[in-house]
């Protein structure tokens, strides 16, 4: 019998990555539940929820949460409304220019994103969209297009045509086939894409900051101003936990559905 050799490389990577990736986040989590932590004590002097009350008692935090949630919902709904029919068309219908239009959604990715945002902001300036809610909605909407089309297209394509054809064969109308066969089959993947769009919009900082701030303050924008102007460390920590934990769980779920393989392929690996 041979014993499996100890995987020293693996242990080294696991230790290094735990230290570099998990540790900083743990520090933030600790700060969020700390009432008093004065230098140079290695552990906080007093744990507690004092700053949660403080943060949740601030009006600007609640405004930001409402803004972020409304924004993410509106963007996801509009994105679904315009992208899902388009995705179905790309997956199932033939029309002139299908390929070039399909790949046109990559156009934005050939340019550095922030430069593009500045160029868009230049146009928004003339249209009076800077500092407005709908300006931010538009900028986020553009950000969701690529995966809200590509992921559902892949989902629709993976639905076996013969399944749809046999439904037609037993007497279902095309619309009925779509509703009862295609959509349930592609459903989980599409749900994951919607989730990605929601969470992505919720997270997004650059566009919201450039187009929206200071009138439209989403949570990440508020976070920037906390980092820059807020001497109380715990405010940022509490906001981080608040902003991140729910979306992290959602993302984990989305990734399970879509699979890391297609995640990578989507990025051109």
């Amino acid at each position: 019998m041979d014993r499996p050799r100890t995987d020293w490389t693996g242990i080294a990577f696991a230790t290094a990555l735990t230290l570099l990736i998990v540790f900083p986040l743990l520090v933030v989590a600790t700060w969020a539940f700390t009432n008093v932590w004065r230098y140079p004590s290695v552990i906080p002097q007093e744990f507690g929820l004092r700053y949660w009350h403080a943060v949740l008692g601030r009006a600007d935090v609640w405004t930001s949460i409402t803004t972020s949630l409304t924004l993410a919902t509106v963007v996801t709904l509009i994105s679904a409304a315009i992208c899902l029919p388009a995705a179905y068309a790309f997956a199932r219908l033939e029309f002139p220019g299908r390929n070039i239009l399909f790949f046109s959604f990559l156009a934005g990715h050939a340019f550095p994103k922030f430069g593009l945002l500045v160029a868009i902001a230049g146009i928004f300036l003339n249209l009076g969209l800077i500092g407005t809610f709908w300006g931010v909605v538009l900028i986020q909407l553009v950000g969701t297009l690529l995966f809200m089309i590509w992921i559902p297209v892949a989902a629709f394509q993976s639905v076996d045509r013969r399944m749809e054809e046999s439904a037609r064969d037993v007497g279902a109308s095309p619309l009925r086939v779509f509703w009862s066969i295609t959509l349930p089959q592609a459903g989980p993947t599409i749900a994951a894409a919607l989730l990605l769009s929601f969470v992505g919009t919720f997270y997004e900082t650059e566009g919201a900051w450039l187009i929206g701030a200071p009138q439209v303050r989403t949570l990440p924008v508020l976070m920037i101003s906390f980092i820059n102007n807020q001497p109380v460390i715990q405010f940022g920590a509490v906001l981080s936990v608040l902003l991140w934990v729910p979306s992290f769980i959602a993302l984990l779920f989305a990734r399970r559905v879509i699979g890391s393989g297609s995640f990578a392929r989507g990025f051109g690996g």
Binding site: F90, L93, L101, L116, V142, L145
Partner: peptide
């Protein structure tokens, strides 16, 4: 063709918000 109609809104958005700004 129906397909073109269905893909028109997102493609228009790409043209207006990416191609045109550049």
């Amino acid at each position: 063709p129906t397909g073109l109609l269905l893909v028109a809104p997102p493609v228009a958005l790409v043209c207006w918000m990416i191609i045109w700004p550049i």
